[in-house]
Amino acid sequence: MLKIGITGGIGVGKTVVCRLFQLLGIPVYDADTRAKWVMHHNQILKKELTEAFGADAYNKAGELNRTYLAGVVFNNPERLAQLNGLVHPRVGEDFTDWLKAHAGAPYIIKEAALMYESESWRQMDQIITVYAPMDVRIKRLLQRDPHRTEADIRAIIGKQLKEEEKMKRADYVIYNDDKQLLIPQVLTLHEKFLAQSSAATAGA
C-alpha cells in the first residue's frame, strides 16, 4: 500500500487538505489526535508517563493533564525529547494496527505535524508539505484561538522545524496561501497517487 505523509507547521491548514483527500475516499490517520487517544487509553504508556513525569501527569479521573505536561516540556528540550520518546513508539504501534484495518485502500495518508521530528517520515513512501506564509498562519491562528497572543504563536512556530526545511525535504508542496486554489492541487496529487498505486498493483 502506498503511504503518503502530510506535514507542515501550525496554522498552515493540514487538516483542511486532509479533509479534501477524505472526501475523495482516502483514509487519513491523524497522528496528533491519535496520540492524544493513545495517551488516554494505552495503560502501559499511562504508567510510563506517570513514572517519568509524576502523578500530576493524569488527574484523579485518569485523564491526561495536558496543561501540566505542556508546562513541563515547553522550554525544556530534554523533557520534551523524553515525552516524545515514550509517546511516539506507542503511536507507531497504533498506526500499524490502523494500516491493517485499511489494507484495501489504494493509498493512505498520515497527517503529522512532527513528521520529521518523530522520524515517522521514514515509514512513508512520499511526503507532502503544506505551506502558508507566516502572516497568513498568524492571522488564522488568532482567529482560531483568540486566547493566544501573536507572541504565543510565534513562540510555538519558533520551536518547530522551519518551513523551508520541510519544503526542501518534501516530495510535493501544497500551497495554502489564500492565493492558490487548494482543490486542483489535491486532485492532481490524488490522480498521481492512484496511478502509482495501480502501477504497483499491476507489477506485483
Rank of each mutant, 00 (worst) to 15 (best):
I4E: 00
G5L: 02
I6Q: 09
G8Q: 01
G8D: 05
G8I: 00
K14P: 04
V16F: 04
V16N: 01
V17Q: 01
C18M: 06
C18F: 02
L20Q: 12
F21S: 03
L23E: 15
L24I: 12
L24G: 12
L24M: 12
G25Y: 02
G25D: 11
P27E: 03
V28H: 07
Y29C: 10
Y29R: 01
A31M: 06
K36C: 07
W37V: 14
V38R: 14
V38W: 14
H40Q: 15
H41S: 12
N42V: 02
N42P: 08
Q43G: 04
I44C: 06
L45N: 08
K46V: 11
K47A: 13
L49M: 15
A52M: 13
G54C: 11
A57Y: 03
Y58D: 05
N59K: 14
A61D: 12
G62V: 11
N65S: 05
R66N: 05
R66Q: 13
T67F: 08
T67D: 11
T67S: 15
G71A: 06
G71E: 09
V73W: 02
F74Y: 13
N75H: 15
N76Q: 07
E78A: 15
L80Y: 01
A81N: 10
L83Y: 08
L83W: 05
V87G: 07
P89I: 02
R90F: 02
R90V: 05
E93P: 07
E93K: 14
D94V: 05
F95C: 10
T96A: 05
A101I: 00
A101W: 03
A105C: 05
P106N: 14
Y107R: 08
I108C: 00
I109Y: 02
K110G: 08
A112Q: 06
A113D: 00
A113M: 01
L114A: 13
M115P: 09
M115S: 05
Y116Q: 05
Y116S: 05
E117F: 10
S118M: 07
S118T: 05
S118R: 10
S120G: 00
S120V: 02
R122Q: 15
R122N: 04
Q126S: 07
T129Q: 01
Y131L: 02
A132I: 14
A132R: 09
D135A: 11
R137S: 04
R137Q: 12
I138V: 15
I138E: 11
R140A: 06
L141P: 00
R144D: 03
P146E: 01
R148L: 15
T149P: 10
A151W: 04
D152M: 04
A155C: 10
I156L: 08
K159Y: 01
Q160F: 09
L161H: 07
K162R: 15
E165F: 08
K166H: 06
K166C: 06
M167Q: 13
A170F: 00
A170N: 03
V173A: 00
I174H: 00
D177C: 10
D178W: 07
K179R: 12
K179E: 14
Q180Y: 04
L182R: 10
I183A: 14
P184E: 09
Q185A: 07
Q185E: 11
Q185N: 11
T188P: 01
L189V: 13
L189F: 03
L189S: 13
L194C: 13
Q196I: 10
S197N: 03
S198H: 14
T201P: 02
T201V: 14
T201K: 05
A202N: 08
G203P: 00
